[in-house]
């Protein structure tokens, strides 16, 4: 079984995000960028499937600027076999990503695509579902466990009410949740070996997909600064403040 793992280069989760002075977005210049943490979980799961003999090849693919190649190298250092960089400097939205990935899937013919449930920059949570719809493949989203059967996958999903296990047919789309696994570190020798693994470079424009954003960002603002609280003297005062000032009762 061949597994395709799309990965996204995002602002590192440790970075304190700052809004650009003109409000057009967040500051990305000189900011540490890393692989989307959910995508690390996807790669780890793919590697575990390969280690247990259930997968044969892992291909990582990233759509983004030239620097996204570093993100692919991270995936290769963890244990993926080869990479595909689809270059674009444009902002691309989930629909365009899903359309490009559909073309990649048709070319690579994986049996399984494992995606992070969302990227921590825009938190869209759409790409996996859209890709599933376009391909007409089954989907198991928010996976916290995957069991491979005969042509099927048992996917345990993290849903609002708890856990739900669904059996889906291969080929399939899985999106990963936080508790699926704990991604490994890429060791120093593997970081070096990753340099010798192949990365195909393509251009997003060559996929014949309309990359134009459908959404317009009107503004980006910092979250409001938390105001100091007040200490009330009695329950009566609390209730009256909640009713008359906060308007929540």
């Amino acid at each position: 079984m061949k597994i395709l793992v799309p990965v996204k280069r995002v602002i590192d989760f440790n970075v304190k995000v700052r809004v650009k002075s003109d409000g057009s977005g967040v500051e990305l210049a000189n900011v540490k960028m890393s692989m989307n943490p959910f995508d690390e979980i996807s790669i780890e799961e793919a590697i575990r499937l390969k280690e247990s003999g259930k997968a044969t090849e892992i291909v990582v693919v990233s759509i983004g600027p030239q620097q996204a190649q570093e993100t692919l190298r991270t995936g290769l250092a963890m244990g993926a076999d080869r990479g595909i960089l689809i270059k674009t400097d444009q902002t691309i939205e989930p629909l365009a990503v899903a359309k490009i990935l559909k073309a990649v899937v048709e070319e690579e013919k994986p049996e399984l695509v494992i995606l992070g449930k969302q990227a921590i920059d825009d938190d869209c949570n759409q790409t996996g579902q859209m890709l599933s719809a376009m391909l007409g493949w089954s989907q198991g989203t928010f996976a916290s466990n995957i069991d491979v059967g005969e042509g099927t996958l048992d996917v345990t999903r993290e849903v609002d009410g708890g856990l739900e296990t669904v059996q889906i047919k291969l080929p399939a789309i899985v999106t990963t949740d936080l508790r699926l696994n704990e991604p490994r570190y890429a060791s120093l020798p593997n970081i070096m070996k990753a340099k010798r693994k192949p990365i195909d470079v393509k251009l997003a424009e060559d996929f014949g997909v309309d990359l134009t954003p459908r959404l317009t960002v009107l503004g980006t603002v910092e979250p409001p600064v938390r105001k100091a609280g007040v200490i009330v003297n009695s329950v009566k005062e609390l209730v009256s403040k909640l009713r008359d000032e906060a308007g929540v009762l």
Binding site: A77, Y185, S187, I191, K195
Partner: peptide, 15 residues
Amino acid sequence: SEDQRAFQDLAADFA
């Protein structure tokens, strides 16, 4: 270099 940043990230995460 890109490699050195990767070594640095790995060591920092481990630490």
